[in-house]
């Protein structure tokens, strides 16, 4: 069963016909050549496929493309300026990952960066987390808060210490 949908991907309007079974992740990677979101577990457990959907971080492997007709999708490649082309500016969160060596193999990194960008917006909006002692108090992003809020992104290389350092700096 096919359906024709429109997605705005990293600022560019894309129209495509998909089998209804296509996940947003597969539509991005296999149909639209947007390969920065990665397929890790494909079951919502690792966070490698994280993108910003209408500004909020979600797992693209558990989203059906057909259910998000008209949505605005930002991948890690679309976060900076210059569409990721040489000479473009990295997003400050991506820059911090580079500066702090917040990766080894890099496979989880686009998901980590998108997740961190979404997470910083959530903290900015005053959303509490499981690590927040007082649900009514303003959010202060200490390391415990960063770790809890990023717990949906796994890094098999174990670069967590530097990931936390990168996000800590980006949060300033």
């Amino acid at each position: 069963m096919d359906a024709t949908i429109t997605l705005r991907v990293d600022g560019e309007e894309r129209r495509l016909t998909v089998d209804t079974r296509t996940t947003l992740l597969d539509a991005l990677r296999d149909r639209l050549e947007a390969t920065s979101p990665k397929k890790g577990c494909d079951h919502g457990q690792c966070g490698a496929c994280t993108v910003l959907l209408d500004g909020r971080r979600i797992l693209s492997c558990l989203a059906l493309a057909v259910a998000h007709d008209g949505a605005d999708v930002t991948t890690a490649a679309g976060l900076g300026s210059g569409d990721g082309a040489p000479g473009g500016e990295l997003h400050p969160v991506a820059r911090a990952f580079v500066d702090h060596d917040g990766f080894q193999c890099g496979y989880c990194t686009p998901g980590q960066v998108c997740s961190a960008v979404g997470m910083l917006r959530e903290a900015e909006a005053g959303w509490p987390s499981h690590a927040t002692a007082d649900l009514d108090a303003p959010v202060s992003l200490d390391d415990e808060e960063i770790r809890e809020r990023m717990s949906g992104n796994l890094c098999r290389c174990g670069a967590y210490t530097n990931i936390v350092a990168a996000i800590r700096e980006a949060a300033r």
Binding site: I58, G118, M119, S129
Partner: peptide
């Protein structure tokens, strides 16, 4: 807040 992850709770 004790359940799932930030990405899952958004969806």
């Amino acid at each position: 807040l004790a359940g799932a992850s930030g990405q899952l709770r958004n969806a």
